[in-house]
Nucleic acid binder design. Structure first.
Lengths: 259, 259
DNA sequence: CGTCGTCTTGATCCATATCAACCTTAGTGG
DNA sequence: CCACTAAGGTTGATATGGATCAAGACGACG
């Protein structure tokens, strides 16, 4: 299966994440270890809050929908999908999380996790006991403020996503690609050449569509030429066009693409 | 236009909000003044934080998208819609807010309001300077915790809404009705008989659809009989059926409705 | 009582869900 | 190392929910 060693040496964090499929990215590939910008500041101040690390193998569950809130999680490496059990049986993907992302914030109000968390890759998270964290924040104003920002960011992200309702699938998928690029970029990876960790069906579910439809969108985008998606490898050739499509300006997008 | 007097006597808050269209609700109609549960606790502790009140007449703007964050708002009475200027010109409704709801939380991370706020009724809000509030929270652990809950609630709400992508319009509208009922119920009003403050087009925009389509859904729902919607007056007859439709269990919903 | 905004209804067309078959790839065991 | 297998991905055919455009009815407010 997916066995990975348990050493806690730093090399662990450097060998794990995405190795861009194509060479020569214009972006600096900095290591995503202690030094990079996934909330280094917070993690430093928060060091004492991290009760432990936890590894989850691919397809493993970190928590279930309805679990009592005890821990918040910060992704250290790997990726997760948040899933909700829609009505009966049907499972919907609510979001994707990668290094630096906080998970479980929705549970603060309800006391229970509102989404299950499933690893898309072999992953590791920091476990942060919420109760203790809340207390500590009071004595660390900086941390307190940063945490509010984190929650606000999450809120914006969700609001942003929910604005996608009603846009065309092309638009939603383009936006998805842009966001993934942005996230990778933040982590120091290329945003024009990256590898997705989730299935077409997962993306479809996240975007309120289906795996089949995603497949077709991918084909369409490839044909348009502003992007090359082969399997899970994504290469963005025309960022402007992609962004235009994501905004629903299809007409202009094509003009830009044809150039 | 919509002129309303500026007195700050308590009676102001009791005469303003919705008077249920139909009589004899099974729910207690408690006044939505200081005594009801729109965060009385917080407002009491937060009293010092409230820098002021501000009235906004119907169709008036409280703030614009992009405005620098200075104030957070808590609705005191009336209702607002949050709007985003999608790409060029097109205006999308991101959410609706009524008494007790916090607005502007998304601005904490970006420093700028991400939505414009427009009053749907003559309304009043509490103005809360964020910087000061953040400071005060540190000295009031209870308030701090409550504020985290509020942000988490907002997060859950958005996440919930974004899960609607891909569901049928019937399902989304049913959910909308359920949520509106729940909100009114929280404020002490009937959740089975209430009046909407927004246009069909607003609802359509919020749900990723159009005014015309909303009109058709309304007609369909009325025909099914589990609800009677006439203009902006809503009456829910079969809560179970409505809930079922909101979950996408249309088949069962109809069975329940036919009884 | 007239006017404007809102709501409803009709006709048409397109995007995308759905069902179904097939292909590809990566992981497995011989 | 190669063949097997199952999960994931692609592609096709068809059906339909909603968008869109257009016209008319209603209702609230001045």
């Amino acid at each position: 299966m997916h066995i990975f060693h348990i050493s806690t040496s730093k090399s662990d964090f450097n060998d794990k994440p995405q190795t861009p499929g194509s060479p020569c990215s214009p972006f600096p590939i900095i290591g995503v270890g202690e030094g990079s910008n996934f909330d280094t500041l917070l993690l430093k101040t928060l060091g004492s809050l991290v009760a432990g690390k936890r590894r989850v193998a691919r397809n493993g569950r970190l928590c279930r929908e309805g679990d009592k809130l005890g821990l918040l999680y910060v992704v250290r490496f790997g990726q997760f999908k948040a899933v909700a059990d829609d009505s009966i049986g049907q499972q919907r993907v609510a979001g994707f999380h990668m290094a630096g992302d906080w998970m479980g914030l929705g549970a603060i109000s309800t006391g229970r996790h509102n989404f299950g968390l499933i690893a898309l890759d072999d992953s590791e998270v920091h476990e942060i006991p919420f109760a203790a964290a809340a207390k500590t924040m009071i004595t660390h104003p900086q941390m307190h403020h940063r945490f509010l920002e984190i929650m606000s960011e999450a809120l914006c992200g969700e609001a942003h996503h929910s604005m996608a309702v009603g846009n065309s699938l092309d638009s939603r998928f383009a936006r998805f690609l842009v966001q993934m690029g942005a996230k990778y970029s933040l982590l120091g990876y290329s945003n024009i050449s990256y590898r997705l960790s989730m299935t077409r069906a997962d993306i479809g579910s996240y975007l309120g569509s289906t795996g089949e439809s995603m497949s077709r969108v991918v084909a369409r985008f490839n044909a348009e030429g502003f992007v090359t998606i082969s399997g899970r490898n994504v290469e963005v050739h025309n960022w402007v066009a992609l962004d235009a499509v994501s905004r629903g300006l299809q007409r202009e997008a094509k003009q830009t693409a044809i150039h």
